[in-house]
Structure formats: structure tokens, C-alpha cells
Amino acid sequence: MRLISTINSGYTYSRTWPAKPELNAIFPENKVIFLTRKAVRYLPALAILTAGIQLKLLGTDFLGQIIAMMLLLVSMPLQGWYWLGVRANTNLPPALITWAREIREQIQKQGNVDAVPGIPKNYLDLAHLLRQAYQQLDNSVMRRWF
């Protein structure tokens, strides 16, 4: 059950993380999320296509290997969500906590103090904070940190 909750957490994290180009230089999340979404879209069709080709060329003698290859291709998005789930629950390093506090203070200066999340402890909390910062703060304020 822990595996399923980690994958579910990764899926939630991939939906929460703001996909902004300026975050690419600091965090690998944008790349992993992009590749996971592409894998969800294209790998099932690719698995069926390659299985059909292999079945036609090799015959039913290699059915076990063909099924194993299909399962590997279809499981790739799950591997991406698993990595994101582990990352979402990882504690932030002290430098990122300080940076998140600065962003939180800017949000408090600009808008509703009650809607500001607490100080982030893990990457999922940071994703919520960054999403809110991109929604409430001006782009010039956000680009100052990048």
C-alpha cells in the first residue's frame, strides 16, 4: 500500500508543481513531469505496436519476452510518478527553506494573509507555495529570485 500511496502522491505533486521555464535551472521536476505526461500518452500505443511487430516476426515462442517488454513500457509512467512521490515527501534543504520564507513574505505583503500556506517542510509544500506565488505575485517579483 505504501507504493500506491507514493505513486498517488507523485501524481498529485505533478498536478501541483507550477510548470514555469524559470524553474528548469533549479529543479528537475519540470523535465520529469513533461516526460511522464508524454509516457502516459504514447507508451501504451508503442507497447502494443512493438508487441505486434515482435509477435509477427518472432512468433508465439517469444510470448513471455514480448509480454515482459510490454509491461516495462507501460510501467514507465508509474516510475515517473514514483520518483515524483518520493521527491514530494523529501524534506527541503535549509537554503530552500530560507528562499521559501522570502517568497512567503512577499505573498503576505501583496495579498491575503489568511490564504498564505505555512513555511514549507517538503517539496509538495514548496509546490503549493510556488503555485500561489505565481498566481498572486507580479512576474517581475518572481523573476527576481531566478
Rank of each mutant, 00 (worst) to 15 (best):
residue 96 L to N: 03
residue 139 N to Q: 14
residue 90 T to P: 00
residue 22 E to F: 08
residue 101 R to W: 02
residue 71 L to P: 00
residue 28 P to V: 06
residue 102 E to K: 03
residue 121 K to D: 10
residue 54 Q to Y: 07
residue 59 G to E: 01
residue 21 P to K: 08
residue 121 K to M: 12
residue 58 L to V: 06
residue 124 L to S: 11
residue 14 S to A: 15
residue 37 R to I: 01
residue 56 K to M: 08
residue 62 F to A: 15
residue 24 N to C: 05
residue 103 I to H: 00
residue 12 T to F: 09
residue 19 A to C: 02
residue 123 Y to Q: 09
residue 26 I to L: 07
residue 84 L to R: 02
residue 104 R to P: 01
residue 68 A to S: 07
residue 112 N to M: 08
residue 33 I to H: 03
residue 62 F to R: 15
residue 86 V to A: 05
residue 61 D to R: 11
residue 15 R to C: 10
residue 2 R to T: 06
residue 18 P to V: 09
residue 62 F to Q: 15
residue 41 R to K: 13
residue 130 L to I: 05
residue 27 F to N: 02
residue 110 Q to I: 03
residue 44 P to C: 04
residue 37 R to A: 11
residue 109 K to E: 15
residue 27 F to D: 06
residue 138 D to Q: 14
residue 144 R to A: 14
residue 116 V to L: 11
residue 80 G to K: 11
residue 50 T to E: 06
residue 83 W to I: 14
residue 29 E to M: 08
residue 113 V to E: 13
residue 29 E to Q: 12
residue 18 P to D: 09
residue 5 S to H: 15
residue 14 S to W: 05
residue 129 L to D: 03
residue 12 T to P: 00
residue 111 G to W: 07
residue 61 D to T: 06
residue 119 I to L: 13
residue 115 A to Q: 15
residue 15 R to P: 00
residue 144 R to L: 14
residue 67 I to S: 01
residue 92 L to N: 01
residue 51 A to Y: 05
residue 69 M to G: 11
residue 102 E to F: 02
residue 113 V to A: 13
residue 144 R to T: 12
residue 81 W to P: 01
residue 136 Q to K: 10
residue 45 A to R: 04
residue 92 L to K: 00
residue 36 T to M: 03
residue 8 N to C: 04
residue 13 Y to H: 13
residue 36 T to H: 07
residue 31 K to V: 11
residue 109 K to D: 14
residue 100 A to V: 02
residue 102 E to T: 09
residue 44 P to H: 06
residue 144 R to Y: 09
residue 108 Q to A: 13
residue 65 Q to H: 06
residue 12 T to Y: 10
residue 31 K to T: 14
residue 66 I to K: 02
residue 77 P to E: 09
residue 61 D to H: 13
residue 84 L to E: 03
residue 50 T to A: 04
residue 73 L to Y: 13
residue 138 D to R: 12
residue 32 V to E: 02
